[in-house]
Computed example of a mutant assay.
Amino acid sequence: MEHIPPAMLERLRIYEALLRKWQRTINLVGPTTLDAIWIRHFADSIQVSDAAPEARRWLDLGSGAGFPGLVTAIRYADDPEAAVHLIESDQRKCAFLRGVSRETGAPAIIHCGRIEAILPEFDAPVEAISARALAPLPVLLDYAGKLIENGATGVFSKGEQAEAELTDSGLTGRFSITTLASRTSPSARIFVITRRPDFGSPRAASTGPA
């Protein structure tokens, strides 16, 4: 695992301790992944923000236990420009996310509700959108397409079926899509999706889907 600054390392240790504590009563992550949390969850999440290194204002869809969105917020905890919005529908997981955010000082804003209900009212400025193993690419682009068309970057972690999703999606007409190999799983991929330069006019990404 790559070098982590001391302040971030300490925050991630707090995160790990809280996750292990809450995992006893809430199924936050697959039990078999707990012993590999630093690679399977933390390093896997860090490579998402690596894919959009200039972004400090993020929207994370279907955050679950906070991967990758809460790790992104922890990474930029000392940056006054950072704000990471996490959308999660499970009330107990929202409570967990708020607890970790509070204990680590991460600039995370938790939106507890379904993505379809939150996004139409969401109007915070966003530079990048993330999701990990949430839904097929066409569904993710239904959620995030307007933000990407307005200038945000989509960074989506996908499993071994990702290439087939891309081939079948017909998305290349609207978006530029770059595929990155995952550093933590040989079968996984990260899709970096931006608005095609010849598709519409550039605008600052500030609102969600109408």
Rank of each mutant, 00 (worst) to 15 (best):
A7Y: 14
L9K: 15
E10P: 08
E10L: 14
L12S: 02
R13W: 11
W22K: 11
W22T: 04
Q23G: 11
Q23L: 13
P31S: 11
T32H: 15
D35T: 10
I37T: 03
A55K: 12
R56T: 13
D60I: 04
L61K: 03
L61W: 02
P68H: 01
G69V: 02
V71D: 01
R75I: 09
D79K: 09
E81V: 01
L86M: 03
L86F: 01
I87M: 04
S89K: 10
D90N: 13
D90A: 07
Q91D: 13
R92W: 00
C94I: 02
C94R: 04
C94S: 10
L97H: 00
A106K: 00
A108Q: 05
I109N: 03
I109V: 11
R114T: 09
I115E: 14
E121M: 04
E127D: 05
I129M: 10
R132I: 09
P136K: 09
P138I: 05
V139N: 05
V139L: 12
L140Y: 02
L140C: 05
L141M: 14
D142I: 00
Y143I: 01
A144I: 05
A144N: 05
K146F: 05
L147Y: 03
I148R: 04
T153F: 02
F156M: 05
A162H: 02
A162R: 01
E163P: 04
A164P: 07
G170R: 08
G173T: 12
F175P: 08
I177V: 12
L180F: 07
S182K: 02
T184Y: 07
I190C: 01
V192H: 00
R196I: 02
P197R: 01
P197Q: 02
A204M: 12
T207V: 12
G208I: 02
P209T: 14
